[in-house]
Structures are given as structure tokens and as C-alpha cells.
Nucleic acid binder design. Structure first.
Lengths: 107, 107
DNA sequence: TTTTAATATTGCAATATTACGATGATATAA
DNA sequence: TTATATCATCGTAATATTGCAATATTAAAA
């Protein structure tokens, strides 16, 4: 099968899992961290920095875009973008809540 | 190919991605949340609660175990386990740091 | 307009993930 | 000992992910 049974879970559980999936690749972690370290927006140099082929980087960027974590201009030549602050903090909050709502009344 | 080029990234980036991968499935989110809601340890009822087949649940539990998030007894009948508090807080910390070290000097 | 540079899309091969039936192992109950 | 109940493992089918070569698209430069 290989297909996740999303209907069995809550919207929130599915959304959290979806965001985690985007973070579930070191290249995407590296991309986000690299963008973050820059003074301003990112233009061009990601392919050289990460060391994967250009189509591969493009694909990874697309995954990150899908969950709303990037903003900027995306068409044609000289793409420029950076991290969407509102969305970032929203996701940070989601993980925060997830990690904080766990009990340890244990064996 | 389908194989991640882990050698291109730092150990920390790979580890964070690996943990995110475990969280990247709603069933595993649901399992963790269900265990958390219980008074004590979990015994038996996970299959009924989540609604996936027993081998599937077993597989998901194994993924969670792999990153050290569960403790308890795992052999034979009447498996009992709960969340490993130290490891949980360690991972919480990792995500916290990841989400906090991002800059937004943007376009 | 033609070239050039940067990014996107397509198509494909290799591998990973998800799910479950069948079966095996283990421990308690009868 | 013989069920029975619980969890693990194996094998397999369906689908998803990763990565890249080839190619297309786009916008600015020449």
C-alpha cells in the first residue's frame, strides 16, 4: 500500500505530521538554516552551498514552500526569498504545544 | 534513487531530520498523544484506539522506539511502556533550538 | 532579437515507507 | 499440556520519496 490513512486522524495530527515531513530531510533543514544565516534574502547560491543538483534543490524548496515557510519572488530569473516569519512562529508554536502536552506518569 | 545523501550534511542536521521523520506520520503523533493522555503505562489497547492493524501499530511503535522515545518492557505478552522523559525533553530542546535560531532579515 | 543565466518541470531509476495477512514467539489461563 | 491472548517478524503489494539528466520557461543582458 504505502498510502497513509489520513482520515483516521485529526486535522491537527495530520498537519503536524505534514510539517514534520518537510523537516524530515537534512537537505531541507540545511536549506532553512542557510537562509536563516544570511543577512537578507537568498538569491541564487543555494545549489553551490548545499551540494545537490539544481532540480533536486528546486524540489526541496517546493516542499518547504508548500507549507508556507517561504516568501518572496519565485518566478523566472533571480529568485529571491526568505523565511515567512508568521508561518515560522506558527509552526514553532505547534511543536511547542505538542512537546509540552505530554505526561510522564510512568512505569 | 530515493536514497538520502546524508554524508553531505552535519550529524545534527541528520539527527534532527531523523526525529522529524518519526513525527512525520499522523499515526505516530496519535500514538504519542494517546500514551501521554494515560494515567500510567500503556498496555494492549493501542490497536483498538488507533484503528490500524496490529502489525502496522507494531511497526510504528518500532520507529518511535528507534529514536529512544519509549521505555518499558517490550517482550512477550502484555507489553507495557510509556514515554522516556529524558529523551523527550532532549528532542524538545533540539526543536526549540532549531526554531529559535532563525533570522528574519527579509525582503 | 539573440544570447545567457537562473529556476521550473518532466521523466525515470533506485530506494523507502505504509499497510496488512500469515505466521512465529512468548507468557498466562484453563 | 493445551488453549488463548498479545506482540513481533516476514513477505509482499501499493505508493511515496529522492535524485538527477534532459528539457522548458523566464527575464534580463548584449
Amino acid at each position: 500500500m504505502g498510502v497513509t490513512k489520513t482520515h483516521m486522524f485529526t486535522v491537527r495530527q495530520n498537519e503536524l505530521a505534514q510539517v514534520a515531513k518537510v523537516l524530515a530531510h537534512p537537505a531541507r533543514i540545511a536549506i532553512l538554516e542557510y537562509i536563516s544565516k544570511q543577512e537578507g534574502c537568498i538569491c541564487n547560491d543555494l545549489v553551490d552551498v548545499i551540494g545537490l543538483a539544481q532540480p533536486t534543490i528546486s524540489q526541496h524548496l517546493n516542499e518547504i514552500k508548500k507549507i508556507g515557510l517561504l516568501k518572496g519572488t519565485f518566478e523566472g530569473k533571480n529568485l529571491c526569498y526568505c523565511i515567512n516569519e508568521e508561518r515560522w512562529e506558527e509552526l514553532q508554536q505547534s511543536f511547542q504545544v505538542f512537546f509540552s502536552n505530554i505526561n510522564f506518569n510512568c512505569c
